[in-house]
Amino acid sequence: MAAFAAPGQPGQHRRSPRSHFVTDPLYEWTATCEERFGTHPVQVVHEWNTAVHVQDNESDAKKRAFTKAELHAFFAHCDDEVARIRAFGRKGWLPAFRDAMLFKTAYAYGLRRNETRMLDAADFGRNPHGGEFGEYGRCQVRFGKAKKGSPPKRRGVLTVFGWTPDVLDEWFTEVRPLFGTDNSPAAWPSERGMRIGCQRLNSRFIAYRKALGLDDGLDFHSFRRSYVTHLIEDGWDPRFVQEQVGHEHASTTSLYTCVSSDFRTRTLRRHLDSTIAAALQTQTGRQA
């Protein structure tokens, strides 16, 4: 949809699905406007200077979040694969361990795929207001999703899950050094390059999803959907969740929220019970 403003009249825009006709010389509207109003319309919004619709990935009705049981099963399968490969004495256990840690980190901070794979070891640090998380109280995202024509968007994400520091500490202190990454800043090094590629992450994710018999409505982005959904279900403030995932508008965050029927039932029951309790208390007070 295009937007237009007449010269000398900033802020006065006309929007129409067919507004490109207004400035098309074939229709002679510019000449008519010059004749009648002494000015002419100018197109100010084009495909090249507007952001791509940010909800495209969420428009597919099949896409969804993990349930907590599915997520637990997925991560358990990740760990089992590492143990299985290692038991056979194969070298592939290191990449499998890395990918398991990467998947868990994507969920732990509600990250997109590229945001996760572009993390450096130095992007994790202390949160002075969350000392219990130690050296992993905060994750600095440097390659957030950018608007078209803009640089990557940065944001800091605070650690919220108690298990996150243990997972990251094991990776960075015990396993990552086995990759021989002394000169690499990458949090998730590749066997053949500095960073793991998107295709490798996709293939690993799909293999695990198929092994568990899960549907294709789950993809890497489901870690992010799950993060939003599970925090909302657990009672976290929606504005806090919005800031954590870097959404400019609350309506965007709401698209990611796929609360379970159990959550809705518990919420309904809690409000009904409180309403009934309040009514009974009022009635008792009147009788007294």
Rank of each mutant, 00 (worst) to 15 (best):
L231Q: 01
V245L: 07
V45T: 15
A76F: 01
T116N: 02
Q9C: 13
G156F: 08
D80P: 02
L158M: 11
A83G: 03
R154H: 12
L102A: 15
R98L: 04
A278C: 01
A279V: 07
R98F: 05
L214N: 00
G131R: 08
L119Y: 02
V44E: 12
H46Y: 14
F240W: 09
K68S: 14
S260K: 00
I276A: 12
H40W: 12
G131W: 02
A76E: 10
L272V: 14
Q199S: 14
G285C: 08
W29C: 10
Q43A: 13
F88A: 12
T30V: 12
V259W: 02
E243V: 10
F88S: 09
V160W: 09
A187D: 03
Y136T: 09
T39W: 09
V160Y: 09
E34K: 07
H247S: 00
D80N: 05
T105C: 12
E81A: 02
L268T: 11
A100S: 13
I276K: 08
S274L: 07
W93P: 03
V167G: 06
S260N: 04
L71V: 01
T30W: 00
E243P: 00
R15Y: 15
L178F: 06
F205H: 06
T159M: 09
C33D: 06
G89I: 10
R192H: 13
F75P: 03
H53I: 10
K91N: 10
P189L: 06
T282E: 15
F103M: 09
R155T: 07
A61R: 04
A279C: 02
C198W: 08
N202L: 11
H129Q: 13
P177S: 10
F133A: 07
A121P: 01
R90K: 08
Q283I: 03
C198E: 14
V22R: 00
S222H: 03
K104R: 14
Y107G: 07
T229I: 09
N49I: 15
A2P: 01
V160M: 12
